[in-house]
């Protein structure tokens, strides 16, 4: 009788554990796999000059390609900032200027997948942003800052700037945090 209970408990734990492990890994895997599909969609986008979805049921499309040579980062940026978008890669905030255009462009990404590398960025690192129009824009990292999400206030600047946002602190278990890590860059 006791053994029976033990076994059931063990299997429940086993099943629960496997599910959580798989789900956690899936979140990460999705971010990696999606980027592979997105690289294709990106090539199509640049070739055709029209927004191309990476998969037919996608609700977003690639808007830029972001590279940091020093860190070996190569990411496709998607349009939008909803959870659905960020699951696959960094997203372009709808209210901000289009990537590569004059004005202030803001990108957000997950601190534990696409934008994990933000913590390794240093001053004067160069971020390369390719736009769908085939233009390449280089941005120099100016400074970084931690700020509470509630107080974020984005000013439109007339000069070209790019800001990257992710959650803060990095490497913590808590998924809900009020802090955001911001990296400010300017056209170089």
């Amino acid at each position: 009788m006791k053994r029976w209970i033990l076994r059931i408990t063990a299997f429940v734990l086993l099943a629960g554990g496997s599910f959580l492990l798989a789900d956690g890994c899936w979140i990460r895997a999705k971010a990696v796999l999606a980027q592979i599909l997105l690289q294709n969609a990106w090539e199509q986008t640049v070739k055709s000059g029209k927004p191309t979805k990476a998969w037919p049921w996608a609700d977003t499309w690639p808007v830029a390609r972001l590279q940091v040579e020093r860190l070996g980062i190569d990411l496709i940026v998607l349009e939008g900032e909803s959870g659905e978008v960020l699951a696959f890669g960094p997203g372009h905030l709808l209210g901000s200027s289009a990537p590569g255009s004059e004005g202030h462009c803001i990108l957000a990404g997950h601190r534990d997948t696409s934008f994990q590398f933000l913590q390794s960025l240093q001053q004067d690192d160069i971020i390369i942003l390719d736009t769908t129009a085939g233009l390449t824009q280089r941005y120099r990292v100016m400074e970084s800052m931690v700020h509470t999400a509630e107080d974020l206030y984005f000013r439109e600047s007339a000069s070209s700037s790019l800001t990257l946002i992710t959650c803060y602190p990095f490497n913590t278990l808590e998924a809900d945090t009020d802090l955001r890590y911001l990296v400010f860059t300017e056209k170089s």
Binding site: L13, G17, L21, G95, H110, D176
Partner: peptide, 29 residues
């Protein structure tokens, strides 16, 4: 403000939490 200026974007996933909790449960099992 967050709703207006995009600060509402959730930029963290529960992946790490899930993986660790999953491992703990497997350990217990």
């Amino acid at each position: 403000a967050t709703k207006v200026f995009g600060g509402a974007a959730k930029t963290a996933t529960p992946a790490q939490q899930r993986i660790l909790l999953g491992l703990l449960l497997l350990l217990a099992a």
